[in-house]
Computed example of a mutant assay.
Amino acid sequence: MQLFLSRTYFKGGTNGKIFFDGKLVCESIELPWRNNKRNVSCIPEGRYRLIKRHHTKHGLQLALSIVPNREGILIHPANFALRELQGCIAPVTKCIGEGEGNYSRIALERLEDLVYPVLEKGEEVFLLITSVKSSS
């Protein structure tokens, strides 16, 4: 299974749309691109394997495997990238500003409902991150 994350970069954050099989699953927010610096930048574009990770405090989580020069990159709920993210990806129902979205937990549940059954069958899930070319 492969999901596609199409990003648009802004000074205040990175907004995206996550698709599967040509259909929009949810939107996403991330930190702005700051040369892949830990805790302050979104991760580089590329293809990443999604894995399940169990956290003692937060329970079962989706994580990205083998991100260049980074570790612990998760997909978790957040509505304001600059305040709530440190390099991770937050699914949101709708982007409402640069790096801002709403109803993140609902969007995460939608994504998990799609991905977890595939992972539980022992199949691989990948996230291909690309960018939208701006017309400005």
Rank of each mutant, 00 (worst) to 15 (best):
R83E: 02
F126I: 02
E124W: 11
L5Q: 13
G99K: 01
C26F: 07
Y9T: 03
Y116R: 03
I89G: 10
G59Y: 10
H58L: 14
T130I: 14
L24M: 11
I75C: 04
G46I: 07
P91G: 08
C95K: 10
I18D: 10
W33M: 03
F80M: 03
S28M: 10
G13V: 00
L50P: 02
I51H: 08
R38S: 14
I96A: 05
I129Q: 05
S6L: 14
E124H: 13
I66F: 11
C95W: 08
A78R: 03
E100C: 00
I18Q: 11
R38G: 11
T56M: 09
L50Q: 05
L74T: 02
V92I: 12
F126E: 01
A63D: 02
F10D: 01
N39E: 13
P32F: 00
V125K: 03
S65R: 10
G46E: 08
L114W: 10
R110G: 01
G59D: 06
R53D: 04
C26E: 04
C42E: 07
L114V: 07
R49C: 01
P91F: 09
L108W: 05
R49K: 15
S65Q: 14
I96W: 05
I89N: 07
K17W: 06
N69L: 13
E27F: 09
Y9W: 04
I18T: 12
N39I: 12
F80N: 04
V40K: 08
K57E: 15
E71I: 12
I106E: 11
I89M: 09
T14A: 02
P117S: 09
K37V: 15
N39W: 10
R105W: 14
D21Y: 10
F20T: 04
R49Y: 02
S65W: 14
N69C: 10
Q86W: 11
E84A: 00
L24S: 12
E120A: 08
F10V: 01
D113L: 05
G101I: 10
A107F: 01
L127N: 05
F10K: 04
F80P: 00
G22R: 07
G46V: 08
S28I: 12
R83G: 00
E124Y: 13
V115Y: 07
G87A: 15
L85P: 00
I18W: 12
A90N: 03
E71T: 14
C88Q: 11
F126Y: 13
L62Q: 07
A107S: 01
F4S: 09
L74D: 06
L60T: 09
L31V: 00
T8Q: 14
I75R: 06
S41V: 01
K23M: 07
F10M: 05
R70S: 13
E124R: 15
P32E: 01
P44F: 13
Y48G: 05
K37I: 14
N69R: 14
G101E: 06
C42R: 08
V125D: 02
V115W: 09
K23L: 09
G12P: 00
I75Q: 03
L85H: 01
R49W: 02
V92T: 07
R34Q: 04
K57V: 15
K57T: 15
K11G: 03
F4W: 06
R105D: 15
Y116C: 02
K57P: 09
P77L: 09
I73F: 11
